[in-house]
Amino acid sequence: MSDYSEILDRLNELLKPYIKADSDIVLTEDSDLMTDLGLNSVKVMDLLLNIEDSFDISIPLSELPDIRTVRDFALLLERMTTQGNA
């Protein structure tokens, strides 16, 4: 079980490789994964696999349409790691 701030820190670390080195993007909880970070659907799916490995969970694909921002993702991870997971 992890608390929200710990999850957010881990998530930010996992997101860093997806941000171009020369980019001036500042990652916040409100950052939109597609419009702000420029992740296309392939990169989001790749990111998802890395997050699943890191948190040792499997995220159902049905959860993805509700994930737009870093905060959405962190809240999902908080819920899944708290509830236990498939």
Binding site: M45, L48, L49, S58, I59, P60, L61, S62, A86
Partner: peptide, 9 residues
Amino acid sequence: RMSDAEVIR
């Protein structure tokens, strides 16, 4: 997407 099942990859 059409299925009611939980889908993971």
